[in-house]
């Protein structure tokens, strides 16, 4: 068989015949919290509080949320000034108005202007508007991003390829408690006459965190 290695079937080291380096299997014991999660989940199922199907459905619902939801909200705000006013007044209500099921998420939209650029972080853990944008990128949860962006946001933004004029004020939002944040980026120049759907395609995840800017039209 092509995947047999008769010389040493158990200890794969170096480069595989297909040219990839071997990686060790992830054979570490469960952590304390992983055991706790399994124990609690099994108890809840045993006691009839929930079912495996419900757990799987919730995971699927969470995975189905993506930055495209937020992009649709941003594009609507770009084309509809009344919607933009409602978004800035109450971003949760405005997102629900567009049909997004965001649960109990309390969302604040912060607007970028030529004078102000907003950036979102959670220094205490990894608070993120998951119910609208889906799961956060891994770097958002890293100690490096969380500790650096509150202290040297310009350096961090430069590493993301965003260099702002010195007279633009950076406003860093530390999501320390009950609220979650989304940046309303500035509409790029040259997008006059584009449809809402075309505009939404320009809105990147990072532009709604504040570590990026929307794409320019091709």
């Amino acid at each position: 068989m092509p995947h047999d290695h008769p010389d040493d079937p158990f200890h794969h080291e170096g480069i595989s015949p297909s040219g990839h380096p071997y990686r060790k299997d992830d054979d570490t014991p469960l952590s304390y919290w992983q055991c706790m999660e399994i124990a609690v989940r099994e108890l809840l199922i045993e006691k009839g509080v929930t079912t495996p199907a419900e757990v799987a459905a919730q995971i699927e619902a969470m995975d189905a949320r993506s930055p495209a939801n937020g992009a649709a909200v941003v594009a609507r705000a770009w084309v509809d000034p009344a919607f933009k006013a409602r978004l800035l007044a109450d971003a949760s209500a405005a997102s629900r108005e567009m049909g997004f099921d965001i649960g109990t998420l309390r969302l604040i939209a912060v607007e970028n202007t030529p004078q102000v650029h907003n950036v979102i972080v959670c220094t205490l853990c990894s608070c993120y508007p998951r119910n609208l944008l889906g799961l956060p990128p891994d770097w958002y949860k890293s100690r490096a991003y969380r500790s650096r962006v509150v202290k040297e946001p310009r350096k961090v933004l430069a590493e993301f390829g965003v260099t702002l004029p010195e007279d633009t004020t950076i406003r860093v939002h530390d999501s320390t408690s009950e609220m979650r944040y989304i940046v309303l980026p500035m509409r790029p120049p040259g997008t006059e006459g584009m449809s809402e759907a075309e505009l939404a395609a320009l809105v990147t995840r990072d532009s709604m965190i504040g570590t990026g800017l929307p794409r320019r039209p091709a």
Partner: peptide, 25 residues
């Protein structure tokens, strides 16, 4: 939501003293 200047939070070490930091307290 409380607003701080970077100068207030980081003193001399602030990257840009006039940038802002906001948090829920």
């Amino acid at each position: 939501r409380v607003r701080f200047t970077m100068a207030e939070v980081w003193g001399e070490a602030a990257e840009n003293p006039d940038d802002l930091l906001e948090a829920e307290i």
